[in-house]
């Protein structure tokens, strides 16, 4: 297979398949979660549900003192990684183009030099998180194969993107195809791994906030 054929494959049919599985999986998983439903709470409410639910969704974005003290590495690197990843994903022009072509929406991108720096920071954060997972007794205990594997997969999406952008791997079609391939891998496993928290964390936070809110507590 020539590099261009490889690129055409990853840019065409494989991307199609990956996106189909991704969307299928997300929808399936969301149904699996939501159809289980929630029993109506018969206890007289002290507070509302909706507003506190939404408030908790927002509040858990903010790292508090306890997290910074108790889990500084996870909190700081985790934060860097999440922000960095989304900056690279959503503010790099070629990515915006992709979104524009599929969803028809578009926004201005960041200068590539900035994306470049953010990508490096994000990759370093991921490496740090990986090392931390291996080093901390607590995290080593909690970690499953999936936890390490996903760090690698997410790292690969950034790393291959970085290689392609800087043409470290030649020829370019191969580099771009590798990038697409790693993204496709991530898309395919996404719904069936903890990556799903990208969606369910919002549900979970909402439920948490709503259940506590009903009892008059800000959670």
């Amino acid at each position: 297979m020539t590099p261009t054929e490889f690129l055409v494959l990853t840019r065409g049919p494989l991307f199609d398949i990956a996106v189909t599985i991704f969307v299928f999986g997300i929808v399936l998983r969301l149904f699996e979660v939501l159809i289980l439903g929630r029993k109506a709470d018969l206890a007289a409410a002290r507070g509302a549900e909706f507003k506190p639910g939404m408030a908790t969704v927002m509040r858990r974005f903010v790292p508090d003192r306890e997290k910074l003290q108790g889990s500084p590495v996870v909190t700081i690197l985790g934060y860097l990684f999440h922000v960095g990843f989304f900056v690279c994903l959503l503010l790099f022009v070629p990515h915006i183009e992709l979104i524009h072509s599929t969803l028809g929406i578009s926004w201005p991108g960041l200068p590539t030099a900035m994306i470049d720096a953010v990508a490096v920071i994000t990759m370093l954060a991921l490496v740090g998180l990986f090392i931390n997972r291996l080093n901390s007794k607590l995290l080593r205990f909690l970690s499953t194969f999936e936890d390490y594997f996903l760090l690698v997969v997410v790292f690969l999406t950034l790393f291959t993107g970085y290689l392609a952008f800087h043409r470290i791997v030649e020829p370019y079609p191969t580099a771009l195809a590798l990038h697409l391939l790693s993204v496709e891998l991530m898309l395919v496993i996404f719904p069936f791994t903890k990556l799903m928290h990208t969606f369910t964390a919002f549900l979970g936070r909402y439920y948490n906030g709503a259940m506590y809110g009903r009892r008059g507590v800000e959670s």
Binding site: K67, G70, T75, G78, L138, L139, D147
Partner: peptide, 25 residues
């Protein structure tokens, strides 16, 4: 099992932050 439980289990990223909140840990 209900929707909250299912979302909670789906979401856990094994970050270990809950451990630091629990006095038993």
């Amino acid at each position: 099992m209900d929707a909250p439980v299912a979302s909670f289990f789906s979401s856990c990223v094994h970050c270990g932050i809950c451990a630091e909140a629990c006095l038993f840990y």
